[in-house]
Measured scan of single mutants.
Amino acid sequence: MQFKLIINGKTLKGEITIEAVDAAEAEKFFKQYANDNGIDGEWTYDDATKTFTVTE
Rank of each mutant, 00 (worst) to 15 (best):
M1Y: 07
M1C: 02
M1S: 04
Q2P: 07
Q2K: 04
Q2G: 07
Q2S: 13
F3I: 02
F3G: 00
F3M: 02
F3S: 01
F3N: 00
F3K: 00
K4P: 00
K4A: 07
K4F: 10
K4G: 08
K4V: 07
L5A: 02
L5I: 05
L5F: 14
L5Y: 01
L5M: 04
I6H: 14
I6C: 06
I6W: 08
I6E: 07
I7S: 03
I7Q: 02
N8C: 07
N8Q: 08
N8M: 04
N8H: 14
N8A: 07
G9K: 13
G9W: 13
G9V: 11
G9N: 09
G9C: 03
G9P: 05
G9M: 04
K10Q: 04
K10T: 05
K10I: 09
K10L: 05
K10P: 03
K10M: 04
K10F: 06
K10A: 09
T11K: 04
T11G: 13
T11F: 06
T11H: 11
T11M: 07
T11L: 06
L12F: 12
L12K: 11
L12I: 10
L12G: 04
K13V: 05
K13L: 08
K13E: 06
K13Y: 07
K13R: 08
K13N: 13
K13C: 03
G14F: 12
G14M: 14
G14D: 06
G14I: 12
G14T: 07
G14A: 10
G14Y: 07
E15S: 11
E15G: 04
E15P: 04
E15K: 07
E15F: 09
E15R: 06
E15C: 03
E15H: 09
E15V: 14
I16M: 09
I16A: 09
I16N: 14
I16W: 06
T17P: 05
T17C: 02
I18F: 11
I18S: 05
I18Y: 09
I18N: 07
I18A: 11
I18Q: 13
E19C: 06
E19N: 06
E19D: 15
E19R: 02
E19I: 08
E19Y: 04
A20Y: 11
A20G: 12
A20F: 06
A20L: 07
A20W: 04
V21K: 14
V21N: 10
V21R: 06
V21F: 08
V21Y: 11
D22R: 03
D22G: 11
D22Y: 14
A23C: 06
A23S: 11
A23L: 15
A24D: 13
A24S: 06
A24E: 05
A24C: 03
A24V: 08
E25N: 15
E25C: 02
E25K: 05
E25F: 04
A26R: 00
A26N: 00
A26G: 10
E27V: 15
E27R: 13
E27P: 00
E27G: 13
E27A: 10
K28T: 11
K28Q: 03
K28H: 07
K28E: 12
K28Y: 13
K28C: 02
K28G: 06
F29I: 07
F30R: 00
F30I: 02
F30M: 06
F30W: 02
F30K: 00
F30S: 05
K31V: 11
K31A: 07
K31D: 02
Q32R: 13
Q32Y: 11
Q32C: 02
Q32T: 08
Y33N: 02
A34R: 02
A34V: 06
A34N: 08
A34Q: 04
A34T: 15
A34I: 05
N35G: 14
N35E: 14
N35K: 12
D36M: 10
D36T: 10
D36R: 13
D36P: 01
D36S: 12
N37Q: 13
N37L: 05
N37C: 02
N37P: 01
N37R: 12
N37H: 09
G38D: 04
G38E: 09
G38Q: 07
G38F: 14
G38R: 14
G38Y: 11
I39F: 14
I39G: 01
I39P: 02
I39V: 08
D40C: 11
D40Y: 13
G41L: 03
G41F: 04
G41R: 01
G41T: 01
G41V: 01
G41P: 01
G41K: 01
G41Y: 02
G41D: 01
G41S: 02
E42I: 09
E42R: 12
E42H: 09
E42T: 13
E42V: 11
W43I: 15
W43R: 01
W43C: 01
W43G: 00
T44Y: 11
T44F: 05
T44R: 14
T44W: 08
Y45I: 03
Y45R: 03
Y45Q: 02
Y45E: 01
Y45H: 02
D46R: 05
D46E: 08
D46K: 07
D46T: 15
D46V: 07
D46W: 10
D46H: 08
D47M: 11
D47Y: 07
D47W: 06
A48C: 06
A48H: 12
A48G: 11
A48F: 13
A48E: 11
A48L: 12
T49D: 10
T49R: 10
T49M: 14
T49W: 07
T49A: 12
T49H: 07
K50Q: 06
K50E: 03
K50P: 01
K50M: 02
T51L: 15
F52N: 00
F52V: 01
F52P: 00
F52H: 03
T53R: 13
T53N: 07
T53S: 13
T53F: 15
T53I: 04
T53V: 07
V54T: 06
V54K: 00
T55N: 11
T55C: 08
T55H: 11
T55M: 12
T55P: 01
E56A: 13
E56P: 14
E56D: 05
E56F: 12
E56S: 09
E56G: 11
